[in-house]
Amino acid sequence: MNSYLLPLLGGVLIGVAASLLLLFNGRVAGISGILGGLLAPAPGEAGWRGAFLLGLAGGGVLLALVRPHAFGAPVVPGLGVAVVAGLLVGFGTRLGNGCTSGHGVCGLARGAGRSLVATLVFMATGALTVFVARHVVGGAP
C-alpha cells in the first residue's frame, strides 16, 4: 500500500474512535486526561476511563497478533532515560492540560487556539530534543 495511505487510514480510525467516545459517552478523547483523571477518580468517573484504557491496551494485544511489525524497537538509550521521559510526559501533559490526542486531535478539530499553541510548542520542543539527542550528542550528520 502507498506509504502515506496507511498513515492516513490510521489517522481516520483515530478520528472515528474519538468521535465514538463523544457520541456515546460525551467525552473528549484526550489520553493523558483520561489517565490522569483515574489517579483519584470522582464518583462515576472510573468506569469509562478504565474501560477506554483497557481498550487501548487490548488494541495493543490485537495489533501484536495481526500486525506485529507495528511495534518498532525502543529508541531510548537506556532504562533511566525511559523513566525521565515518562516523568516529563506525565507532569507536562497534566500541567499543559493535554497531549497529542487532547490538543493535537480533539482540540485542533474544534478550532481551539489554546490547542494550536500547545501543539506547536510540543512539536517544537520534541524536534529540538531529537535534534540535540541525534545530531549534537548522538553524532549523526
Binding site: 525521565v84 521521559a85 515518562g86 510526559v89 510540543f122
Partner: peptide, 12 residues
C-alpha cells in the same frame, strides 16, 4: 506543560 511534554516525547 506542552514544552516539557515535547521533550519527553522526543526522548522516548
Amino acid at each position: 506543560g506542552a514544552a516539557l511534554f515535547g521533550v519527553g516525547w522526543g526522548l522516548a
